[in-house]
Design a protein around this nucleic acid. Structure first.
Length: 855
RNA sequence: GCCCCGGUGGCGAAACUGGCAGACGCACGGGACUUAAAAUCCCGAGUUCGCAAGGACGUGAGGGUUCGAGUCCCUCCCGGGGCACCA
């Protein structure tokens, strides 16, 4: 019988499901291992690029299981979100229906790939049994002041018709739809993540098994900076304004002050300005700028003089107070002391408005820069010292910072401070398909959280989806109109829903006890199974999801629900799968459907218009027509082939371009494995064993076990597959070059089946059964290498003369050094290079090489 | 601008601690089987000089350390990602 993947694949998928091989009882004792693929948004269609993430996870799952661990590998659905609502508007299907149908589709696709999940733990964030606990958690946070409502300028996406968190804005644009984000002053719900900034930053140090890149991104996003708050007196007002600086040592060089136009003190400062109206008009103009405009580097700096002065507390000089659009109201105190000689932004502002510079820092071993000659701010890459700075003159920069901070504190005009770039997390969304925020507005009682026994606040199903004008929830009278839980008076429900990132910030804990109806989860069980031992997902969540999850985990910790603060011990980010797509330069570089692309002499043209096209490698996406659906591949080659190819294509953390042609190589490989099986079972039993060929194959077997195991441990799936191919080739050589022991052939083949099982599970199960095993391969024990049998008897020693390769010879492993060197010197290929020379140095690396240095 | 990560055959890549560069594949060339094709199997192949034996060159560029560098150090070029007036 030849290899027919279709038949055997459905057979085994069915059997794994029936026997519930991936289900685990969380109360079962044993060494636990919690592995988790980030739960997906159920968009419906999976392509081979998505497959990378899940296939990798499944290979790991099968391997760990065979290693004998109790592996929890659940799957669920990040099921709230905009696409479902947009589908409702476009096609009149209710978001719930659309979501449920997509979930069913995706489950079928997982099955077709042969992926095993513990479906008894399945959860969907759009089920009220799940989002109820979202609401419960929100109320806990509200009670502790960690969830609060505030009016502030927020990011508004006019296309999505909702506000966005800071993290969801990329380069001034909406992360989802790329529409430019506007600033709006709105009252919204926030979670106080900034209160955890310090802990979130410090915790990064422990995450040694996370990709360095992700830790760095989080660190930058949190943006911890150490400095000092300093008060500058405003004699005219009899008050002072506080600035934040990371360089208090440069305070003697602070020649002016700049406030954000939004700074609360501005009105008083410009009250008696002769041209007040003009300044106010300018302030309005700055406020109306989008973040994109305001922060664009090309825009240059804008500023206005307030007409007022502050006193520099160290020089006692009066310095002018300016307003500048480059000073951000949300960071620090919204006010800065400007040191134009040593800060590039201040330098540019000073040059633009003719403000004075004063050099107060100089190289430790050189002349101080001269103010009039400066072309840019002078910074301290290397050692520098304070100059022209009163009591700190002559101190090195770090010591000067300390000294001045101490003086500021002792004089009572400020203190050391740590500031963060991180802002509170805006979670209100003006959309329907999300968790309702469980708050009631009462005339008398104000903001009243919905009591626990009234949760969940159910999302009403009978809501009109008309598109555009605002949140459909606000139009559902039966939902909005309610009574105050405190006083019973008529009241109004909050109609904002939560950012879906709230849902995904704790789902990994819910997975352990997903049906718990009395608590968010069972703490005892969660504390045994968490943190997640291995988390797998894309880098696009480096900041958003992973930061929020770390934050919420700390909240759960402080609520006494969990004993840990970091939810994910190890993190792995798989790389993207890309594919060539085609763009039409004559049509504004729009993407061309594959059916319209025609190749002539390897050059792509548009079949309909004859236009020359440009090929571009990009992330798979329907809108770019470069998606490869797995269906045809599975039909033609089988899921095992797709799985092996996906893992072989490149190191899993690297980006990889899908090659429709190269997949044939993996199909050939599996086909060969199948044929070796056929040849082995056809062998005559009981033939005499044949010493050398057998020893050689056995040695190969044990080397391969060791190699594949360590490569899987290091996630080097591509090279693990290479070494299985080599091993498979060795079995082929044994069969075709006179190997005659059926017993040897079978046991070596069985080892191949076991090693290959995580990658090609169907084919290997089929052969395991064909060879007479009654229990499943997935339940077998991972083979263990015998180092004695893996040892080589002979090693190849290469001989170099002056570092150049000149010869090689075989020698018994562990041969004496003197003998090896002697053999090297007398090697026929080497001798000519030694003639007439003297050997001045001999290097011997045992088992590898001899290098003879001659003169 | 700052911070990260990369750059190895025609292509995907390998080389784990400084020790035979290019394993394993794709594509390609030659051969076997076949009426033929597909499938399968075998052989070849970094570039270059040479009939060959063999030699020279070769991991983005240049320099350095070392008996020996894809691997370590310095400078630069190119590609990708992140942050971007954060005081």
């Amino acid at each position: 019988m030849s290899y027919e993947p279709k038949t055997i694949e459905t057979k085994w998928q069915k059997r794994w499901a029936e026997r519930r091989v991936a289900e685990i009882d969380v109360s079962r004792p044993g060494e636990k291992y919690y592995m988790l693929n980030m739960f997906p948004y159920p968009s419906g269609d999976l392509h081979v690029g998505h497959g990378r993430n899940y296939i990798l996870g499944d290979a790991l799952f099968r391997y760990l299981r065979m290693r004998g661990l109790s592996v929890l590998n659940p799957m669920g659905w990040d099921a709230f979100g905009l696409p479902a609502e947009n589908a409702a508007i476009k096609r009149g299907i209710h978001p719930r229906e659309w979501t449920v149908a997509n979930i069913a589709r995706m489950k079928r696709q997982f099955d077709a790939w042969g992926i095993l999940y513990d479906w008894s733990k399945e959860l969907a964030s759009c089920d009220s049994g799940y989002y109820r606990w979202n609401q419960w958690l929100f109320v806990r946070m509200f009670e502790r002041g960690l969830a609060y409502r505030a009016k502030s300028p927020v990011n508004w996406c006019p296309s999505c018709q909702t506000v966005l968190a800071n993290e969801q804005v990329r380069e001034g644009r909406c992360e989802r739809c790329a529409h430019e984000v506007e600033q709006k002053e709105l009252e919204q719900w926030f979670l106080r993540i900034t209160e955890f900034a310090d802990r979130l930053d410090a915790g990064l140090d422990q995450l040694t098994e996370w990709p360095e890149q992700v830790r760095l991104q989080q660190r930058n996003w949190i943006g911890r900076s150490v400095g000092a708050d300093v008060q500058f007196a405003i004699p005219k007002l009899g008050k002072s304004i506080t600035v934040f600086t990371t360089r208090p040592d440069t305070i003697y060089g602070a020649t002016f002050m700049v406030l954000a136009p939004e700074h609360p003190g501005v009105a008083a400062l410009i009250a008696d300005h002769p041209d007040r109206a003009a300044i106010e008009a300018w302030i309005t103009h700055v406020r109306n700028q989008t973040n994109l405009e305001r922060q664009a580097e090309t825009a240059g700096k804008e500023g206005r003089f307030t007409g007022s002065y502050a006193v520099n507390p160290f020089t006692n000089e009066e310095i002018p107070i300016w307003l500048g659009n480059f000073v951000l109201p949300q960071y620090g105190t919204g006010a800065i002391m400007s040191v134009p000689a040593h800060d590039q932004r201040d330098f540019e502002f000073a040059k633009q408005f003719g403000l004075p510079l004063r050099v107060v820092v100089a190289p430790a071993d050189g002349a101080a820069p001269v103010e009039s000659e400066l072309e840019q701010a002078w910074g301290d890459k290397e050692a520098s010292v304070s100059v022209n700075s009163g009591s700190i003159t002559g101190l090195s920069t770090p010591r000067a910072i300390e000294a001045i901070a101490t003086e500021i504190e002792s004089r009572g005009i400020g203190r050391r401070t740590v500031r963060y770039r991180l802002r509170d997390w805006l979670i209100s969304r003006q959309r329907y398909w999300g968790t309702p925020i469980p708050i009631v507005y009462c005339e008398a009682c104000g903001l009243v959280p919905v009591p626990d026994d009234q949760l969940p606040v159910q999302l009403p199903l009978d809501v009109p989806f008309t598109g555009r004008e605002g949140n459909p929830l606000a139009k559902a009278k039966s939902f909005v109109e309610t009574s105050c839980p405190k006083c019973g008076a008529a009241a109004r429900r909050e109609t904002d829903t939560m950012d879906t990132f709230v849902d995904s910030s704790w789902y990994f804990a819910r997975f352990v006890t997903p049906r718990n109806e009395t608590a968010i989860f069972d703490s005892a069980v969660v504390n045994r199974w968490l943190p997640v031992d291995q988390y797998i997902g894309g880098v696009e969540h480096a900041i958003l999801h992973l930061l929020y999850a770390r934050f919420i985990t700390r909240v759960l910790h402080d609520l006494g629900l969990v004993t840990f603060e970091e939810p994910f011990r190890r993190l792995f980010n798989q790389g993207m799968i890309t594919k060539e797509g085609y763009r039409d330069p004559s049509k504004n570089m729009s993407w061309v459907p594959l059916g319209e692309v025609e190749h002539r002499d390897g050059i792509p043209y548009r079949a309909t218009t004859g236009a020359l096209l440009v090929a571009e490698v990009a992330k798979m996406s329907k809108s770019q027509f470069n998606v490869v659906p797995p269906d045809e591949l599975i039909e033609r080659f089988g899921a095992d082939t797709e799985r092996v190819y996906t893992l072989f294509i490149a190191p899993p953390q690297d980006e990889a371009a899908w090659d429709d042609q190269a997949i044939i190589g993996q199909h050939r490989f599996l086909n060969r494995v199948w044929n070796y099986g056929e040849r082995i079972v056809a062998m005559a039993a009981g033939a005499a064993s044949d010493g050398e060929a057998e020893t050689k194959l056995q040695r190969r077997r044990h080397q391969t076990i060791a190699g594949v195991t360590s490569r899987i441990e290091r996630f080097n799936f591509n090279t693990a597959i290479s070494s299985m191919m080599e091993y498979s080739n060795a079995i082929g050589d044994y069969l075709s070059q006179g190997g005659s022991s059926r017993e040897t052939a079978i046991s070596c083949f069985e080892t191949l089946l076991q090693l290959l099982h995580p990658f090609a599970p169907h084919l290997t199960e089929e052969w395991w059964e064909k060879l007479g095993h009654e229990t499943m391969l997935v339940a077998s024990s991972w083979p263990v290498a015998d180092p004695e049998l893996a040892k080589e008897d002979f090693v190849t020693i290469v001989v170099q003369v002056n570092g150049k390769l000149r010869g090689e010879f075989e020698v018994e492993a562990g041969a004496a050094e003197a003998a090896v060197i002697e053999a090297a010197k007398s090697n026929a290929k080497v001798v000519p290079y030694l003639e007439g020379k003297t050997i001045v140095k001999t290097i011997h690396v045992p088992g590898r090489l001899v290098n003879l240095v001659v003169k």
